[in-house]
Amino acid sequence: MQIGLVIGTVVPCEIYKGLEGVPMQWVRPLDKHGQPSGEAVVCADSTRMAGPGERVYFEGGREAALALDPWFVPVDHAIIGIIDDVHVAEEGAT
């Protein structure tokens, strides 16, 4: 699982059945220091509460689909939760 930052939203007008109403967010992977660490991906938001500017953690592969209900949906990344704090041992909380 990776840390990420929600940087945008995707609003589909047509979507595969089972994904109706599931929020889709642009998420840029971050490292523990908050630096960008990869290409942004579109994540289905299983919490349905994440918004741009919020740090989240997201999962890929089958676990991404399992985070949703119904879970048998074509999704390869999903936001699992919204981060309140990140504690890095030598730096303290951010």
Partner: peptide, 23 residues
Amino acid sequence: IVAGDIVSTINHGFYDGRKMLIV
């Protein structure tokens, strides 16, 4: 090597009360 941890209150039910470490 464990580098830190994450605190989260809004998350998928499975992760309620789970200890999440950054490695």
